Simulated scan of single mutants.
Amino acid sequence: MNTVTKLKTVLHQNKEVILLRLTNSTGAYIEVTNYGATITAIVVPDKDGNYANIVLHYDSLEEYFTDPYYIGCTIGRYANRISNAQFTLDKNTYSLDKNDGIHSIHGGFSGLNKKVFDYKIWKEKIVFSLFSPHGEGGFPGNLNINVIYSFSNENVLNIEYKSISDKKTPINLTNHTYFNLAATKAPCLNCELQIDALMYLEMNDGFLPTGSILETTDSAFDFNHFKVIEDTIYPKKDAMKGYNTFFLQNKKTPKPIASLREKKSGRTLDVYTSMPGVLLYTGGYLSIPFIPFSGICFEAQYHPDGLNYPHFDTCILEPDVERNDIIEYKFG
C-alpha cells in the first residue's frame, strides 16, 4: 500500500506551500510540492540496492520561489517558446507576456511554475488543482487544471494532466524535471540515450523552430540506438550548448519515446507520453547552484511554437471539453 506523508509547510505570499512524500511498498518514493506542482525528489535504488535522489533539487522549499531554471516544475499554460509572444486563433490575435526577449516562454510571467496549487490526496494519488482566469498571461479562457501524481510499486511515476476551459484556448503542459541517474551534482553526459524518433524540428539560435521538420537518420540527432550523449554533441555544428531539441514520437512502435541508462549505477529511465513528442534539454545553460549538463530534461509536449505553424501539432481546447494527457517515467 502506498502512503502519503506531509513533510513540511511554509508560507509564501500568505499561501500554504507544502511538501508531500508518496512512498510505494518497496520503499522508493517521490516528493512533490504544491508550489508549481513541482517534483523535488525521486528516490529509487541503483543496481546494488542503494537509494538516492536522481533529480536536481534545492535543499529548501524557499529556494524554489526564486528558481530561474524551472527545476522539477509543471510548465504551462503553454510549454516552450511562442515566437513574438503572439498567436492567432479563429482570426483573433492574442498578445502574450514577453518574458524571453520579444518572445514568450513557458506561460509567461504568470506561468504555472510560480503558482500555489490546491491539493488533495485521492486513492493513493496526489492531486494538484489550479484555476487560471481568462486573460492571464494573455491567453483566452477561464481554465481549470489538475496535475495528478501517482507512483506504483514497480517504480513507475505517472503524471496526468486534466484541462478544461470555458473558451477555445491552446494548452500545452509538461514537466521540467532534470534527471541525473548517477545521483550526483556532476555532468551526466556520459549517460546513454535512445529516442524513438525518425523526425525532429530544426531550431534557430534563438531556440525557436524554423518550421522545417528534418530526418534524424545519420545525423547528430539520431538516437534510434543507444548512444553516449557527449559523443554526439560536438558533431551537431550549431550554436546550442548541448541539446534543446524537439523530437517527434514514432507512433508506429510501442517503444518508450526516450530511454536513458547510466552504467555505473545501473539505473535506467523510460519515458512514455500521450503527447506528440519530447523536447530533449541537456541542461547546458544551468548555473549556480547547479552546473551545466548536470541534469537532463525530457519535456513531453506538443510542438514548440506550434500555434504559429499550421503544419505543427497543437492542442486547442474546445469549450467545456476536458483534455487528458499523460507523462510516465519508468525507473529500473
Rank of each mutant, 00 (worst) to 15 (best):
residue 4 V to M: 05
residue 5 T to F: 10
residue 8 K to I: 13
residue 10 V to Y: 15
residue 11 L to E: 15
residue 15 K to W: 10
residue 18 I to L: 15
residue 20 L to A: 02
residue 20 L to S: 03
residue 21 R to K: 11
residue 21 R to W: 12
residue 22 L to D: 02
residue 23 T to F: 08
residue 24 N to F: 02
residue 25 S to Y: 10
residue 33 T to C: 00
residue 35 Y to P: 00
residue 41 A to D: 04
residue 41 A to Y: 03
residue 44 V to S: 02
residue 47 K to D: 13
residue 54 I to W: 01
residue 55 V to W: 01
residue 56 L to N: 00
residue 58 Y to H: 04
residue 68 P to E: 00
residue 75 I to C: 07
residue 80 N to A: 15
residue 82 I to D: 07
residue 83 S to V: 09
residue 85 A to M: 09
residue 89 L to D: 02
residue 90 D to Q: 09
residue 98 K to A: 02
residue 99 N to E: 06
residue 103 H to Y: 07
residue 104 S to G: 08
residue 107 G to V: 06
residue 108 G to F: 01
residue 116 V to Q: 07
residue 122 W to E: 15
residue 129 S to Q: 12
residue 134 H to K: 09
residue 141 G to L: 09
residue 160 E to A: 13
residue 168 K to V: 07
residue 172 N to D: 08
residue 175 N to Q: 07
residue 179 F to H: 01
residue 187 P to F: 03
residue 189 L to F: 03
residue 189 L to Q: 06
residue 192 E to H: 12
residue 201 L to Q: 06
residue 208 L to I: 08
residue 210 T to F: 12
residue 210 T to S: 10
residue 211 G to N: 05
residue 211 G to W: 06
residue 216 T to M: 04
residue 216 T to V: 04
residue 219 S to A: 07
residue 222 D to I: 11
residue 230 E to Y: 15
residue 233 I to R: 05
residue 243 Y to C: 06
residue 249 Q to L: 08
residue 251 K to H: 14
residue 252 K to W: 13
residue 252 K to M: 14
residue 257 I to A: 03
residue 263 K to W: 14
residue 268 T to L: 10
residue 270 D to K: 06
residue 274 S to E: 12
residue 277 G to N: 08
residue 279 L to T: 11
residue 280 L to N: 04
residue 288 I to Y: 15
residue 300 A to G: 12
residue 302 Y to W: 15
residue 306 G to A: 08
residue 308 N to D: 01
residue 309 Y to T: 09
residue 309 Y to D: 08
residue 311 H to D: 09
residue 312 F to N: 03
residue 318 E to I: 13
residue 318 E to F: 13
residue 318 E to Q: 12
residue 319 P to D: 04
residue 323 R to W: 15
residue 327 I to G: 03
residue 330 K to P: 02
